[in-house]
């Protein structure tokens, strides 16, 4: 043991290698290897008669990917991700602001726990809870009719695009659940960014004659922006890749995640599924590059 210790002291690179080799082998072989396999698969094609994958490099699958029906899926998913991100940012900001700057003592702990618990508690259970809430016979309908506002809900559901048979099969339902499930991911980075703003800076702004609203607009908001961008990385990425929420709560129109799932599962078309999976990677690549320019990574 001691001899080995001496040897490692004399060769710090050896020590570093010992530390790094197991995780790098794991992530390098299993994860990066899988991603390469994925990319490779996307350049294979499927023989539509036999249903077998032809292991020859081709762009045919990408040609298939860019058909209008599939483009529709991508646009629908990206628009949903953008809406969810925006809504999450609006709801998250006051929570983060209060937790970061006003909550004290036990309230501070409670707020922190109040954000951490929903973040870590079971995703499926949360989705299930919303299935209960949004069901036609569920609590939301009950509340609306209790308030004699049933007509309002029915009117809303009758609208094109956002409406549907009931909330649980409407795009509005999908949107609500997305916002709910990803909200904590937005709160935490904003809170972290806000906590980093020194109080003296806000005092300075007030001292220089700024109205609280002006301080908010010109000092607090710009300083919190990296946090918002960091949070948006989560909400955007998570929405892009999710296939369970739209499957359980929503209509039959597909999102990217569902398309990936269905092409590989039901259709057995792994190449097309792989090509579809490349889409969120590309979108997130562009998004991350932009976010990095805005300094979002410091707030993670």
């Amino acid at each position: 043991m001691s001899a080995l210790s001496d040897r490692l002291w004399r060769h710090p690179r050896l020590l570093l290698a010992l530390l790094l080799v197991p995780p790098l082998l794991w992530l390098g072989i299993i994860y990066v290897g899988s991603l390469v396999a994925l990319l490779l698969q996307s350049f294979f094609s499927i023989d539509h008669f036999s249903g077998m994958v032809t292991r020859e490099l081709t762009l045919a699958t990408y040609a298939e990917l860019l058909r209008p029906a599939n483009i529709d899926i991508m646009i629908r998913t990206a628009v949903m991700a953008a809406c969810v991100t925006l809504a999450a940012a609006i709801i998250a900001f006051p929570i983060a602001l209060y937790a970061a700057r006003y909550a004290k003592g036990p309230w501070r702990a409670l707020f922190y726990l109040g954000i951490m618990m929903p973040l870590w508690s079971s995703y499926l259970v949360k989705v299930y809870a919303w299935k209960l809430i949004l069901a036609k016979e569920g609590i939301l309908t009950w509340i609306f009719s209790g308030l004699h506002l049933g007509w309002l809900l029915d009117g809303f559901l009758a609208l094109p695009v956002v409406g549907g048979n009931s909330l649980s099969v409407s795009p509005t339902g999908t949107f609500l659940v997305f916002v709910y499930v990803w909200l904590p991911y937005m709160v935490l980075p904003i809170q972290a960014a806000l906590e980093r703003v020194p109080t003296s800076m806000l005092d300075a702004s007030g001292d220089l004659g700024a109205h609280p609203a002006q301080t908010f607009a010109h000092v607090l908001l710009p300083l919190a922006l990296p946090g918002v961008v960091a949070g948006s990385i989560f909400t955007f990425s998570l929405t892009l890749g999710d296939y369970i929420i739209p499957q359980i709560i929503g209509n039959s129109r597909l999102f990217i995640g569902q398309a990936v799932y269905q092409f590989q599962g039901v259709a057995g078309n792994i190449p097309l599924a792989a090509a579809f999976a490349v889409v969120p990677i590309v979108i997130m690549g562009i998004y991350l590059t932009l976010a990095k320019r805005m300094g979002a990574f410091d707030a993670l």
């Binding site: 899988s34 991603l35 990425s237 890749g241 999710d242 995640g257 990936v260």
Partner: peptide, 10 residues
């Protein structure tokens, strides 16, 4: 960082 569906299909 990548969507779960990407990790899954990969």
């Amino acid at each position: 960082a990548l969507p779960g569906v990407v990790t899954g299909i990969a």
